[in-house]
């Protein structure tokens, strides 16, 4: 069990011609891929184009993906190569070459968020951020801790269970309840927008 198993299932279904399965892979990794590409291509519109190209390349090449590495690792390499090729084509120097997703937490996302989009989107983005921060603070400690360990520290359920000294099933339930609460809080902000 793990990302590899579920991703491999989606990969196999994509190989068999199921486009919905690939849509789920896009849904799952789009945030990370765009964030990664924005380290090379700062212009948001360009970053979107490059990200789209990266996903298209992945789709075309997916029959060659044997599953030796995790899908995200493979996708990550495609994204970096696509971004670098884009910069070479545009005869520009990349902003940063030593891309590592774990380092990217320091990326100045607030400023990029503000520069990125229309004023309306900026407002929605700011509202979302504020709502999530407020709701996170109001969550019971065990829910907030479980979600933070998963989303920010990238721990597996097993590891979280060890840290929190509780069964894996409890971890799964806590993370879900945290997400459920956050989801309810952001729905009014997201409704009417095209975020989902």
């Amino acid at each position: 069990m793990g990302d590899r198993t579920s991703d491999q299932l989606l990969v196999e279904r994509t190989k068999a011609g199921d486009k919905h399965a690939f849509d789920l892979l896009v849904l799952k990794y789009q945030h990370r891929i765009i964030k990664l590409i924005m380290r090379y291509v700062r212009d948001p519109a360009e970053a979107m184009d490059v990200s789209q190209e990266a996903f298209l390349k992945a789709y075309r090449a997916i029959p060659n993906f044997r599953g030796d590495s995790a899908f995200y690792t493979w996708m990550y390499r495609i994204a970096i190569n696509t971004a670098k090729n884009h910069l070479v084509a545009a005869r520009r120097r990349p902003l940063e070459y030593a891309a590592d997703i774990s380092e990217s937490e320091d990326f100045e996302w607030h400023s990029s968020l503000q520069d990125a989009d229309s004023p309306e989107r900026q407002v929605i983005g700011t509202d979302l951020l504020r709502t999530i921060e407020t709701t996170m603070e109001s969550l019971p400690d065990e829910l907030r801790a479980a979600l933070t360990l998963r989303e920010l520290d990238g721990l597996t359920y097993d590891e979280i269970a060890q840290v929190m000294e509780c069964p894996v099933g409890t971890v799964r339930s806590r993370i879900f309840r945290a997400r459920e609460t956050l989801d309810k809080s952001i729905r009014p902000v997201m409704d009417g927008s095209d975020f989902t």
Partner: peptide
């Protein structure tokens, strides 16, 4: 959003 990724895009 928690990981500070640009979800507006």
């Amino acid at each position: 959003i928690l990981r500070k990724e640009n979800v507006t895009l």
